[in-house]
């Protein structure tokens, strides 16, 4: 090949591969959602996924939000002092946590904790022929494994985001009142008065989108895993990277949409 054209060919190949991957994920997502309208359903698997994704993620979500809210209060106070705007700490912490940091941090934590475990579990099932066994036992793997996890992610991650938002604001409140000398009642009043319903709605909507992406990517890469331990490792790594990138991209798109 002409050496001048080689870089262009490489870009073309990468672009085609990226488009093929996007198409493949889109088809997988559509196939998953199509099972919503076609029984049988597996409520027990759904409830287990709700617990695993939701309840057991609470500690990591809470700690992440608490420390981030506290650090945010310190940063805004110190940055605001440059133009005598220290008083806006409650409002900026609230808007920062609810609109951006709450959903994004929870989404990334879910990608780290849930996407990886879902991908590893399903990939291991694939390499040990458990997926084939499901089929021979007249059970559709997408109905039994993918749909319950994706629906649980879609429904429970907004709840986690809501919890993360509240804990993040509380982190800012604690630092604001205990360290920066804000009046407790004023801090809370400023926070509540400043937030709009649209801020909360965008936060929860982002949570739903990120939950869907995180669980879908885990299932998608798990199901496509190659044989062997290396295949399981590669599926796990790819799922987390893809979920994190897609969450950040979706965050930008949803922010454009809401604001």
């Amino acid at each position: 090949m002409n050496p001048v054209l080689a870089p262009l060919a490489a870009i073309g190949r990468s672009t085609l591969a990226l488009l093929a991957a996007i198409g493949s994920v889109a088809i997988y997502a559509a196939q998953t959602l199509s099972h919503l309208f076609r029984p049988p359903y597996y409520p027990r698997e759904f409830l287990t996924a709700l617990m695993t994704i939701g309840y057991f993620s609470l500690p990591v979500v809470g700690l992440t939000a608490l420390f981030t809210g506290g650090a945010l209060a310190l940063q805004i106070y110190s940055g605001g002092a440059r133009f005598n705007a220290e008083a806006v700490v409650p409002q900026i912490v609230a808007i920062g946590m609810v609109r951006e940091l709450g959903p994004v941090l929870v989404g990334l934590m879910i990608a780290a904790r849930v996407t990886s475990s879902v991908a590893a579990e399903i990939a291991t099932m694939k390499v040990t022929e458990q997926i084939d066994a499901l089929v021979t036992l007249s059970t559709h793997p997408m109905k039994y494994l993918t749909l319950p996890r994706v629906m649980a992610g879609l429904l429970v991650v907004p709840v986690l985001v809501g919890v993360g938002d509240v804990i993040g604001i509380m982190g800012g409140y604690l630092v604001g009142t205990e360290r920066l000398g804000f009046n407790a009642a004023t801090y809370l009043t400023n926070t509540v008065d400043f937030l709009e319903a649209r801020d909360v709605a965008s936060s929860l909507a982002k949570g739903a989108a990120f939950g869907f992406i995180a669980t879908l990517m885990g299932c998608y890469y798990g199901m496509r895993s190659d044989r062997g331990a290396q295949g399981v490792g590669a599926a796990t790594k790819s799922s987390v990277v893809a979920a994190a990138v897609m969450i950040l991209a979706a965050n930008y798109l949803l922010t454009e949409l809401f604001f």
């Binding site: 099932m125 040990t128 022929e129 458990q130 084939d132 066994a133 021979t136 007249s138």
Partner: peptide, 20 residues
């Protein structure tokens, strides 16, 4: 028809393929 077809089969996998 897949369900009716598969209902006629049982299979023992090489590694057992039991659900952990």
């Amino acid at each position: 028809e897949r369900d009716a077809f598969l209902a006629r089969f049982g299979m023992l996998f090489q590694g057992g393929a039991l659900f952990d």
